[in-house]
Design a binder for these strands. Structure first.
Lengths: 109, 109
DNA sequence: ACTCTCCTGTAGAGAGTCGAGAGGAGCGAG
DNA sequence: CTCGCTCCTCTCGACTCTCTACAGGAGAGT
């Protein structure tokens, strides 16, 4: 098994999930697969972080959950972005960019 | 009072401090000023985060502390990077860059 | 003297991730 | 048919780190 360092920085998971959901509804397991794939295995989402995050996001009204069946015919909970979630995604994306740019400025000698 | 969102992502403070120290010894208060300045006020380091971080870094042997006098003739604790700290800085810088790039990949549709 | 700025430090609370573990259900292989 | 694998969801305790708020000493200017 590849070590695939996860080490999600606190607070990044939310925006990652929101963004992943912005291309359409998806179930939790799929979201984690997707993030790992798109990040080229740099980011790995632990299940112990994923589901609490999903519930957190749902409680805040940024995503909406619904039971359904996966492509493999399994019971899965599909999440989709709400209007508020879309707004939140925009906000968090911008603040991530500001933050990353600032860190980069410090790190650049 | 300017709002200056701080919201340091957990784990970023260390590399920021290490990097700031890489250009020479400096005292805690100066480090926080420097980071805020270089980041163009995007990053603000709280004192309640700074000093514990400094002590953490020292305990791990990445920085070395020494009492001295500041430019304003005040008692100040000067920190400098150790050899291990330099190594750590290189490592953390690289892993930050990998991480930031990965997040950027996810965020870029 | 008094106050301002510089400078270091601590304590409690809160947020979020990690590792580990549990469990159900579909599907293919033997 | 039963076993085992993959898919999929979920929870708990430990841990780490940041935040807010607080406390205090000492030099410098008024």
């Amino acid at each position: 098994m590849a070590p695939t360092r996860s080490d999600l920085l606190q607070g990044t998971l939310d925006v990652l999930v929101l963004k992943t959901l912005s291309s359409g509804p998806m179930h939790g397991w799929g979201i984690s697969q997707r993030i790992q794939q798109v990040s080229e295995d740099v980011l790995a989402v632990n299940q112990g972080s994923l589901y609490p995050a999903l519930h957190r996001l749902e409680e805040k009204g940024w995503i909406h959950a619904e039971w359904g069946n996966s492509e493999n015919n399994r019971r899965a909970r599909f999440y989709s972005l709400t209007r508020a979630g879309r707004r939140q995604l925009a906000e968090e994306t911008e603040s991530w960019e500001r933050f990353a740019a600032a860190v980069a400025r410090v790190l650049a000698t």
